[in-house]
């Protein structure tokens, strides 16, 4: 394959370098337009009802949210859950995740139609909050199993989501697979992979037992 000579693909290839760069704050000079200082304390989209966070700096978890594996999973659902118009608690959601955590909707097809998008926690909430605000997304756990050893725990969590709590039926059910890590001080979510039911895939009975 011929080498691509455009910068962006080199960028994709240079992930390691990027990561290093990302860790080194760069203060752009005045040599180029747009190199303006970042606004401080800007609360994104706050007045418009559009997605966006209110976080300033790295969020600190509420101790109760990360004290147990059950608590951190419950906090995950609570942070995502809400009726039409309810802005999500970005601080709470992001505080649950280990740095570099990933989210994978297994049934997604992405832009290509063949592979799901993967998300960082902030990208997932940023990209989906608008829909949750508009449609309502009330999600809860209905069954929970786990296996663990030492600092690691795998939670197999059955969920269902409604647009409004009063809806008679959920519009989607599925399995959230959580990989959790305990550093001795708290629990972290390292990744979440989820599989919703589809027209060809129904949850087995054992995953519906509370």
């Amino acid at each position: 394959m011929p080498r691509l000579n455009f910068r962006v693909v080199g960028r994709v290839v240079g992930i390691v370098a990027l990561t290093l760069l990302a860790s080194l704050p760069f203060t752009a000079g005045a040599q180029e337009p747009g190199a303006t200082p970042a606004p401080s304390g800007h609360s994104m989209h706050g007045s418009s009802g559009a997605p966006g966070g209110h976080m300033a700096g790295l969020p600190k978890a509420a101790p109760a949210d990360v004290a147990s594996s059950e608590a951190i999973v419950a906090a995950y659902y609570e942070a995502l859950s809400g009726p039409v118009g309810k802005k999500r608690d970005w601080n709470r959601f992001l505080s649950l995740f280990f740095p570099g955590a990933r989210l994978l909707p297994a049934e997604g097809k992405g832009h290509s139609g063949t592979m799901p998008h993967t998300f960082s926690p902030s990208k997932y909430l940023y990209d989906t909050e608008s829909n949750m605000l508009q449609e309502g997304y009330v999600v809860k756990e209905i069954a929970h199993r786990s296996e663990g050893f030492g600092k690691i725990l795998h939670v197999w969590s059955t969920y269902e989501a409604r647009h409004a709590a009063a809806d008679a039926k959920p519009f989607v059910r599925g399995i959230n697979s959580f990989q959790l890590f305990n550093d001795g001080k708290r629990w972290w979510i390292f990744d979440v992979v989820w599989q919703p039911e589809t027209t060809k895939l129904t949850l087995p009975a054992e995953d519906l037992k509370p």
Partner: peptide, 28 residues
């Protein structure tokens, strides 16, 4: 086209702040 420049996406998505993490890159 003037240039392109990387910024901290996580910071932007969680706070709305723009923080550049590399110098501007000249176009081709």
């Amino acid at each position: 086209v003037l240039n392109r420049q990387k910024f901290d996406l996580n910071l932007f998505q969680s706070t709305g702040q723009i923080h550049f993490i590399a110098p501007p890159e000249a176009p081709g």
